[in-house]
């Protein structure tokens, strides 16, 4: 019966794909990420076309500090790893540990977001590098900002899932939800690797 999916405990091996709804969500989300890839590819293309168009404003080489960005990269990559742990515990039907690792993931996500905000404030205040400074600055803030917005959305998403389900534990209805949230988190992470390479490393090295 329909209510069965809400019972926790005694879950099959891959709870996220045990129901048709779960399989649909799982697959639909993969396709959605395909679309997101095109979205970021378009933003990357735009950025690459405008990365040298700083006109009178500061260039990337002048403002980027690799140390901070490297720290951010490490934090986000780690958060991806912790979300893998969470999913590992989900498959073992260990709800508490899943929540714990998701909690750590969220904390790391906040740390990343905080550093990114700090970075932007720093650029604006110390270099006069705002959204409207040049075509380069507009492209930079759009690309990195889009990613930041994704991170923020992911955090809200994971937190609301954790709060909603903290009392009732894992079941066939919410397992796919947790799973695709973690999938989303990995995607954000992968995009950041490209941003780190294309924006910061190439911006610094040439």
């Amino acid at each position: 019966m329909a209510e069965d999916v809400l019972k926790s405990g005694n879950l099959p091996e891959n709870p996220e794909r045990a129901t048709l709804e779960g399989r649909n969500k799982f697959m639909g989300f993969w396709f959605f990420l395909g679309g997101e890839t095109v979205l970021f590819a378009s933003l990357f293309g735009t950025y690459l076309a405008l990365r040298n168009s700083s006109v009178d404003g500061p260039t990337g080489e002048e403002i980027f500090g690799l140390g901070l960005v490297f720290l951010m990269t490490v934090i986000l990559l780690t958060s991806s790893l912790t979300s893998v742990y969470a999913m590992y515990h989900m498959k073992n039907n260990d709800f508490k540990k899943m929540q714990l690792w998701l909690g750590i993931t969220v904390l790391l996500g906040f740390a990343f977001l905080g550093l990114e905000i700090y970075e932007f404030v720093h650029y604006v205040n110390d270099y006069g590098f705002g959204f409207t400074t040049s075509a380069f600055s507009t492209a930079f803030y759009s690309l990195v900002g889009f990613h930041g917005a994704h991170v923020a959305f992911g955090l809200v998403w994971i937190i609301s899932l954790m709060i909603r389900n903290h009392k009732r534990g894992l079941n066939l209805y919410n397992a796919p939800k947790f799973y695709i949230a973690s999938l989303y988190w990995h995607f954000i992470d992968v995009v950041w690797v490209f941003i780190f390479t294309v924006v910061y490393l190439m911006g610094k090295v040439g």
Binding site: S42, G45, T46, L50, S53, V55, T132, S134, T138
Partner: peptide, 21 residues
């Protein structure tokens, strides 16, 4: 609406980006 410069040649923008996208 927000003062961006993607397509403003004066600010280094490039109008052909729109055509491609």
């Amino acid at each position: 609406l927000f003062g961006g410069n993607f397509f403003d040649p004066e600010m280094g923008g490039n109008v052909i980006i729109w055509e491609h996208l």
